[in-house]
Structure formats: C-alpha cells, structure tokens
C-alpha cells in the first residue's frame, strides 16, 4: 500500500543573517512515523523544525504538509518549542497555557469558551497534569513544565506534531510518560517529529530517524539506517562505542 506523505521538504536552504545553517535539504516523512532528528550541536535541528513551521523563512526550497503549503495546513500541525524559549515566570496558570493550543483554531479576536476549556482539560488529563491545572507555571518542576507544553500541543489536535527536545531536562518518570504519549499518538495514526539528543534511546523510542548536520546525512527506518556509518558521518567521530551498548 502506498503510504501517504506527511511532510515533504525540497531543496531547502536556510540562513541566519545570510549565513547558511541548512544546505539543500530534501526530506520526506511518511505519515504515521515517530521520527527522531539527531545531529550534533549547531547542526540545524531546531532550525529545520522552525523553518517547516514558518518561523524562519528559507532562502531557497519549499516545504509542504500533506501536499500543500504550511500556511494552508496550519491546523494539521502542532508544535512543542524548547522549554527554555519562554519566560516561566509569566503570570499565568498551567491551564491557561494549555488553552493557548486552541487559539489557532479560534483565529483572531474570538475568545476561548467552554468547548476550548474542555479540550484543554482533556489534554491535561492525558499528560497527567490535571491536578496542577490551577498552578502558576513557575511553580511547576521542569518535567511538569514540559508536560504542560506537550498538553498544549495535544490541545491543538493536529495530525503532525513537531517537538523540539521535549525530553531535555526532565526526570526519568516524565521521560517515560512523554514517550508513551508519543507512541500513543503514532498508534492513532499521527506523525510525530522530535529533535532528540540522546542517541542511546533512539532505537528504543523511535521507528524513524533523520541524521542531520547542516546537510541531511540520511533518513529512514531506525532498523535500517541507525548504524555506525551514518552516526560517524553525522558526528564526525567514531560512534561505535556509544551505540553498541
């Protein structure tokens, strides 16, 4: 059976202040995979996600989500940014932050109502944060903050989820909880794309992987391409030891 293509990237070149960070990337992500993007620091992993999401404008190339430009498919896409990208001392509650996930479908000016609140509460329940809904966000632990971000993305009720290091700085329990949610998402046919740091856990958590270091090194099923050769090409040093645990 022909698999649908969730994300298609062609000839993408991205530059910060005209200094390229991603060169001529072609990437096809089939629907329903749980994919890790791995690569060394400064490889452009976050940049790739941000470009797909339209936060950064590319110099050349195009991105399509289910065959259409991102601007037309926004409602199919959810995003979990890096935890450090926001001010956690902002005066707002966990529930409020999760509600923000519904703002996109509301559009300009319309306020969230009961329906949106229900969506947000359900999302919080899924990540096990319902008990903390009224908590001020600065009073949450790092793992809880990450779960709130995840719940916010769940509230977007999308088909494709982009996550920028959702496992960074979380405790072991949260890590397992988050991974279980990601696997559940995949089971229900969603596509999940995750910037990931910990090479050790790639085979265990993901079924698809993309190696990235300014250029795309390789992409495909973990079973087929997660090997020493690709790791060495991506990281520039021999990675045998790191993976053969």
């Amino acid at each position: 059976m022909e698999q649908k293509i969730a994300v298609q990237i062609d000839d993408l070149t991205v530059a910060y202040n005209y200094k390229p960070v991603l060169w001529d990337i072609d990437l096809t992500v089939p629907e329903g995979v749980l994919m890790a993007i791995v690569g060394p620091n400064g490889a452009g992993k976050s940049t790739l996600i941000k470009t797909i999401l339209g936060i950064i404008k590319p110099i050349a190339g195009s991105v399509s989500i289910y065959g259409e430009a991102y601007s037309k498919q926004r409602k199919l896409v959810a995003y979990v940014p890096q935890k450090g990208s926001v001010d956690w001392d902002f005066p707002t509650t966990a529930l409020d932050v999760v509600m923000m996930g519904t703002y996109g479908s509301l559009g300009w000016i319309r306020r969230p109502g009961q329906k949106e609140k229900k969506i947000a509460l359900e999302a919080m329940e899924k990540v096990g944060m319902l008990a903390y809904k009224a908590r001020q966000i600065s009073q949450l632990s790092g793992g809880q903050q990450q779960r709130v971000f995840l719940a916010r993305a769940l509230a977007q009720d999308a088909s494709i989820y982009f996550m920028d290091e959702p496992l960074q700085g979380v405790d072991a329990t949260t890590e397992i909880a988050i991974i279980n949610i990601l696997k559940e998402l995949r089971k229900s046919g969603k596509t999940v794309i995750v910037v990931h740091h910990d090479l050790q856990t790639v085979p265990e958590y993901f079924d698809w992987v993309t190696f990235l270091n300014v250029k795309k090194i390789a992409t495909g099923p973990v079973k087929e391409i997660f090997n020493d050769d690709n790791l060495t090409q991506t990281y520039g040093i021999n990675y045998k030891v790191a993976v053969n645990k």
Partner: peptide, 21 residues
Amino acid sequence: YRQKQQRVEVSLITLLLHLNR
C-alpha cells in the same frame, strides 16, 4: 550591501549543489 551579496552567494551555491545532486 554584504547581506545582499551573501544572499547571492548562498543562492548560487544552492543552485550548483542542486544541479550536482
């Protein structure tokens, strides 16, 4: 001026890489 020039440089290399690949 430099940004404009860099833009052209990057575009040019992008084109060549594309052709090469």
